[in-house]
Design a protein around this nucleic acid. Structure first.
Lengths: 204, 204
DNA sequence: GTCTATACCCAGATAGAC
DNA sequence: GTCTATCTGGGTATAGAC
């Protein structure tokens, strides 16, 4: 199906060169048709981008990280939640397409308000809010120190992984995706251990 | 001097809309001359960008953070180094111009190799290498635990601040610069405390 | 659904008068 | 050193034949 091929090619090129860096001609050339034929499938260039972003948003927002039943599983320890959250996120990035669009999101975030808002709300603020809730719960159960700042703790914990993403998708691009995903898990696990170690209540 | 005004206007517009998002016409209009007159001062558009980047690089690389005399000042404690490094960096950002160009660097990093390499080498890798050295020294002096990973420690420490920068310049743009700089100091201080607390040798 | 042909626009850049 | 006028090229998008 031509429409689908246009989408795949667009994802590939946009993620490499950014939206403005790719022309309709270029997409058509890669697909193997003339540029005018593109308009039989999409009304304009922007519609292709919207289609890509909508796909990404739907994939990402479906089954958000389940910190809801936090109080039920709290005895499983911090690692349980860390692994659950990390798995949920990383499993989405296992698709090649999702990796590409993630880079596109980083690229376009500076001048596309929809992208920026999605990044802020769903990729940053919502997870941080979830971790704050969890850390507050852990405070109330005496698992971590009562005087620590749950927001600071969440950000200190979460922003490290966020910068690893930025580093991979922008600063070190292109580098091997699979290797990155493995390193990411390892590194954030170590980081989480360090952060948690700093505030946990010592059991002597 | 017209040449200078062209530079200032370009910094302002590029930092808002990115290099590709600004035309020579737009710059000329803001300066108050015709677009052809631009070429009496700069051979082409790219030369304006290069001029901006060279200025930034020079400013940033001059007096890099002095971790060299680390062993001499080690008894002043971790805070001394943290404050020294942070001050050196933040003092550069106090100029409005440097803030604008920093955003430009983040914007252009995905498709400008020079920008990306500078970001990687001087803004990320060099500081991390400095912190690794310091943490190794602190290990050898018994100030922090011998079995901790100096690189992981450095990244866990440093990447938090890096993401705060990304968040300010891209995700939350535009927000008040001065407020950000104050928050940055406060937040990274708390973060550093947390990280350091996790690995310091307990003095009982 | 794809093609050719083309309209239209705005970009970067140059020539040459003043 | 600035101007008017212009060139050239690439971009998005449309019309209409097949």
């Amino acid at each position: 199906m031509t429409k689908n091929k246009i989408l795949e090619v667009s994802i590939d090129l946009f993620s490499k060169y950014g939206y403005d860096g790719v022309s309709i001609r270029q997409i058509a050339g890669e697909v193997g048709i003339r540029e005018s034929s593109i308009y039989n499938h999409y009304p304009n260039k922007q519609a292709i981008l919207n289609s890509i972003l909508n796909y990404y948003v739907e994939e990402m927002v479906s089954d958000e990280i389940p910190l809801q039943q936090a109080d039920l599983n709290l005895d499983r320890g911090f690692d349980y939640f860390y692994n659950a959250g990390c798995d949920a996120f990383l499993s989405k990035l296992e698709e090649d397409r999702m990796m590409k669009i993630t880079r596109l999101m980083f690229i376009e975030s500076y001048h596309n308000d929809e992208v920026r808002n999605f990044l802020k709300e769903h990729i940053i603020d919502a997870p941080v809010a979830g971790w704050i809730e969890l850390f507050n719960l852990m405070k109330s159960k005496g698992m971590i120190q009562k005087d620590c700042d749950a927001r600071q703790l969440s950000e200190s914990f979460f922003y490290y992984g966020m910068f690893l993403l930025y580093e991979h998708f922008i600063v070190n691009y292109p580098e091997d995706d699979e290797k990155f995903l493995n390193d990411f898990l390892e590194k954030t696990k170590n980081h989480a251990k360090m952060i948690f170690n700093s505030v946990r209540v010592q059991v002597v």
